[in-house]
Design a protein around this nucleic acid. Structure first.
Length: 423
DNA sequence: TCTGGGGTCCTAGGACCC
DNA sequence: TCTGGGGTCCTAGGACCC
């Protein structure tokens, strides 16, 4: 059996832990740039604020019901996530951290336990240790555990825990899961399946396997097998290393000059290089993209991206930023109001020096080893004294700031912003 | 008249996830 | 005025190899 633990409206719950006045009130957390809703409390959902909807369309409703809004505070959510996962790992030793707010657990060694009780213990302990409310779904496959979790959250009768153990309870439950909400199906396939009168997870599980494979390929076939109790997806306890790394942002106000875009793209490239070093891999390709506002119907649009192959794979901020800025020179067009830009790294090699061949004719005077030591020194200083303590001149926020008007404190990761308690 | 068979690698596009 | 950011996997098709 597998369990899936999922935090309830995680980002909102993180804000509430440090601001108890928010309990019982409608609360939302916004996307970067304060653009749309990415986490909603139960009260906010009840008001009809949809996931992913732009904030400006709901101004009146927000004002009328005094909805509390927050800019996203990822340092806080990341730290709270690791606390939740730590507690979960103490209760259930074999876990796969699937996302910032979800983890699977293999329950093989709990064969003789009452799984319902075990799941309840998980909820209570995580709530007590971290303040974060969670739901737990249990089933014979990961996909069924996901479906169980969906029901645990959706249907209040389950009180946050749903265990699908025998064939009958599985079938009953799957009849209550809309087909597009099955893990791995999604909106597009959901629409397609509905045109063939397959509206629930149960309908889909009973469709002809050959038909499913023809229209939804191997992925769809696997989803169906998993729904029918045949486990195809194992617990992945070691996270596979990343294949690409991306840093991109929308701008708070339009960016028009090349200089301002250089500040943005330089900052994104530098951030990518840092992520690359944390991942422990070397990038061979740099991509830069930029675009005007796709939602703006009055102005001309321009979007372009270009990829450059670097002469050898690197982790160096200096090199990666230089290549990114070179690409920007090529794709930048004067006269447009840019809304968004980003940098992507891929073409990874695992480790230096075994699989990275340095260039014999590399002309910038720094050996790979020197640049390695330099990056390490910069990272150490920035870790100790705060990110951005040492940075390139081009990394600057001038001209491309994001909107971030409702930011809460970094209560758990920054001494200056630690919570204050009055006696 | 008539033109094989078996591969690999890469990319773009479309789907999915959180 | 105003619409996020960061990932994965799969397939088809083209270019190339012998």
């Amino acid at each position: 059996m597998f369990a899936l633990m999922d935090c309830n409206n995680f980002y909102v719950s993180c804000e509430r832990v440090f601001n108890p006045a928010l309990y019982g009130r409608p609360v939302v957390v916004l996307s970067n740039n304060d653009g749309c809703f990415i986490s909603r409390s139960r009260e906010a959902k009840a008001l009809g604020l949809p996931m992913g909807a732009p904030v400006f369309k709901y101004r009146e409703l927000i004002k009328k019901h005094d909805v509390a809004m927050f800019s996203p505070n990822f340092p806080l959510y990341g730290d709270m996530s690791s606390r939740v996962m730590h507690t979960l790992g103490e209760l259930l030793p074999d876990i796969e951290i699937y996302s910032i707010d979800e983890a699977f657990a293999d329950l093989q060694e709990f064969g003789r336990y009452d799984l319902e009780q075990l799941a309840q213990k998980v909820c209570l302990t995580i709530r007590r240790n971290t303040g974060i409310p969670v739901s737990v779904g249990v089933g014979p496959t990961k996909t069924l555990a996901k479906a169980a979790n969906y029901l645990a959250k959706k249907d209040t009768r389950y009180h946050g825990v749903c265990v699908l153990e025998n064939g009958i309870s599985v079938r009953e439950a799957l009849g209550n899961v809309p087909v597009e909400d099955v893990w791995g199906i999604g909106r597009a396939y959901g629409r397609f399946l509905r045109t063939h009168s397959l509206t629930t997870a149960l309908d889909f599980s009973r469709a002809r396997p050959a038909w499913v494979r023809r229209h939804m390929h191997s992925t769809g076939a696997r989803v169906q097998q998993e729904l029918n109790g045949e486990s195809c997806l194992a617990l992945e306890q070691v996270r596979p290393s990343k294949q690409s790394i991306c840093t991109s942002r929308s701008f708070g106000t339009m960016v028009r000059t090349r200089e301002d875009l250089e500040h943005a793209v330089g900052s994104f490239a530098s951030k990518c290089a840092l992520k690359l070093r944390r991942e422990g891999v070397y990038a061979g390709l740099v991509t830069v993209f930029l675009c005007t506002d796709a939602c703006d119907r009055r102005s001309d649009h321009y979007r372009e991206s270009r990829t450059a192959a670097m002469p050898f794979a690197t982790q160096s901020t200096l090199r990666i930023v230089r290549y990114a800025l070179d690409i920007l020179k090529v794709i930048f067009r004067d006269g447009y109001a840019y809304k968004k830009a980003g940098v992507i790294l891929d073409g990874f090699s695992p480790a230096f020096p075994s699989s990275v061949t340095p260039s014999l004719f590399d002309g910038d005077g720094t050996s790979a080893a020197d640049s390695q030591a330099l990056m390490q020194a910069i990272d150490t200083i920035n870790f100790r004294y705060g990110s951005g303590t040492l940075r390139l001149a081009v990394e600057s926020q001038s001209g491309w700031k994001q909107r971030q008007e409702k930011l809460s404190q970094r209560y758990t990761t920054c001494w200056e912003e630690i919570i204050q308690v009055r006696a």
